[in-house]
Design a protein around this nucleic acid. Structure first.
Lengths: 129, 129
DNA sequence: GCCATTCTACTACTGTTGTAGAAGCTGTCA
DNA sequence: TGACAGCTTCTACAACAGTAGTAGAATGGC
């Protein structure tokens, strides 16, 4: 499932807490996103057409909830990125992240920690320090 | 600079080796990309309009070369992804990469190695370029 | 010199995305 | 009971993305 930029905004707002009405979604959008209410409705309808969200009615008011999980969407966005920009392999992406002034030292530290935790989980071999 | 999916294909072919003619770009596209020659020309022209490539003439034949580096394009694609899908922070992306069955053990190893190398580099004195 | 091939420039069509106005329901409060 | 607030559906439309046809200029082989 492919989300457009605007759709990500909506979905992010929805993932935050759901079910939600269109109004609630609107209220949760970043302040710099100044869309008309109808714009949000349109987006939600389109997302519903794409089966990324599900709409139900409480009275005459629409309630929305995600059908697509954030994780799944992230996974597929990442896959698209890797395919189109990093020769289809994670290696180059990793390389890029580590080498290309993209990560702060703090982030590198976090990454090392995450990896260590992961290694332990996996059965604990050598540690990174 | 924002590249569309089709534009990535073209740019990838161009980054491979340049300057290149439209024909050469066409020949380098993945086999499953079956675009008419004119489609590639159109793309190259659009990329030239966007200043992502530069066109020059050798006789009446166009020669193309990238103005936008792959690295820069990667960086900005990554930034967009992180902003839209990972709450604008690299932490969640890292977390995702490490935790979500995305990385093979081999990739993790590579990553650890890259990080270690990087630490050494950063830990020492200034770099000579 | 002429024809087939190969380029180039220009134009066009289609679908998708971003954005929103208009107008019609419904519940509520004075 | 009627005015209003707030919701909904419908409709629109411009910009962009993907894709390619057409026509004319240049080139190369014979």
């Amino acid at each position: 499932m492919r989300l457009t930029e605007a759709e990500w905004q909506i979905m992010n707002a929805l993932w935050e807490k759901w079910p939600a009405t269109a109004r609630q979604v609107a209220d949760r959008l970043p302040k710099d996103v100044n869309w008309a209410y109808t714009t949000i409705k349109t987006m939600l309808t389109r997302l519903s057409d794409k089966k990324a969200v599900q709409e139900s009615k409480k009275g005459h008011v629409g309630l929305y909830e995600p059908l697509l999980s954030k994780q799944t969407a992230q996974r597929s966005a990442l896959k698209t990125l890797v395919n189109q920009a990093f020769d289809g392999a994670f290696g180059p992406l990793m390389h890029f992240l580590v080498e290309e002034q993209t990560l702060t030292d703090k982030q590198k530290l976090e990454l090392v920690e995450a990896l260590n935790k992961d290694e332990q989980k996996d059965g604990g071999k050598e540690q990174v320090q």
